[in-house]
């Protein structure tokens, strides 16, 4: 298997998804659907790692990718003043993708997976709403909240097709991505609603360190754990291991770096 196999497989998967979801007006005004490489990688992980993979796996994986596009579209809606044409069509893009994911699975007659994934979307929506709900909880609980938001649908896909052994990698990988994203926002001087909720919880519950220190530390911890798991894993092929190391820029014994507080 050459080094280009994984990126090429992801790219070809992305092209297939785009065929399903492409809509001229949505593309023009709401942009391309969010089809992040790491999510697509985890959806394809069983295939990339040599598991048996048929059309039903492929179509179902597409439906899960479409769910993430739907939810990501709705995350782009501004809290106030979403009346521009592009925002209006972004609302509809999310709804359209939601309908498509259902349609793909309905055409496969996979009612059990529809149930499991819709159950997951309920959980994800509840967790997303928690940042607007004055929820005060520990830092660890917030990390679990993020993990649910980022990886639940992929975990359910694994569960449904007996690929559950890949769950820890997806959970950790997608958490690393989200923490890195939040820290990047901090560097740019931007504040997310999630960060405001962390700060609020820190104030009311009392964390062991500031949320920013904890977030930096968590990133290093998760990267170290991922590196450990990869190196000890007999499950993942060498090329998959290598791809993960590069994707998350993993190093042995990642320093627990602490970013200066704002």
């Amino acid at each position: 298997m050459n080094g280009k196999f994984i990126p090429q497989t992801i790219e070809s998967f992305k092209s297939k998804i785009l065929i399903y979801v492409r809509h001229r007006t949505l593309r023009k005004h709401a942009g391309e659907p969010d089809l992040r490489e790491d999510r697509l990688f985890f959806l394809l992980l069983p295939l990339l790692n040599g598991n048996q993979w048929d059309d039903e796996h492929e179509e179902s994986a597409i439906s899960v990718a479409v769910i993430y596009s739907a939810l990501a579209a709705h995350d782009q809606i501004k809290e106030l003043n979403a009346s521009s044409k592009s925002q209006q069509l972004t609302v509809l893009a999310g709804d359209y993708y939601s309908g498509l994911y259902y349609q793909i699975l309905a055409n496969l007659s996979n009612i059990d997976l529809i149930r499991s994934l819709s159950n997951g979307i309920i959980d994800i929506s509840e967790k997303k709403a928690s940042v607007y709900d004055d929820v005060k909880q520990s830092f660890e609980m917030w990390m679990e909240t993020v993990q649910t938001i980022e990886s639940l649908s992929i975990e359910q896909f694994y569960e449904h097709f007996n690929f559950a052994s890949y769950k820890p990698f997806a959970r950790r990988g997608l958490l690393i991505h989200r923490i890195a994203y939040e820290l990047d926002l901090v560097k740019q001087g931007k504040v997310s609603r999630f960060q405001e909720s962390l700060a609020d919880s820190e104030h009311h519950v009392g964390f062991s360190h500031t949320w920013l220190v904890l977030l930096n530390r968590e990133l290093a911890i998760q990267k170290n754990k991922m590196m450990e798991e990869i190196s000890q894993s007999h499950l993942l092929s060498h090329s998959v291991q290598q791809f993960l190391v590069e994707l998350y820029e993993l190093r042995l014994n990642e320093q627990v770096s602490v970013m200066r507080e704002r």
């Binding site: 739907a70 939810l71 709705h74 995350d75 809606i77 501004k78 809290e79 106030l80 003043n81 979403a82 609302v91 999310g94 709804d95 939601s98 259902y102 009612i111 059990d112 529809i114 149930r115 819709s118 159950n119 979307i121 309920i122 929506s125 509840e126 997303k128 709403a129 607007y132 609603r193």
Partner: peptide, 20 residues
């Protein structure tokens, strides 16, 4: 608006869960 988005997504998912 964002709360409205999540409320709609939640209700829509409940509908699908139900119809299964």
């Amino acid at each position: 608006n964002r709360v409205a988005m999540y409320t709609g997504d939640f209700i829509f998912a409940r509908a699908l869960e139900y119809i299964t």
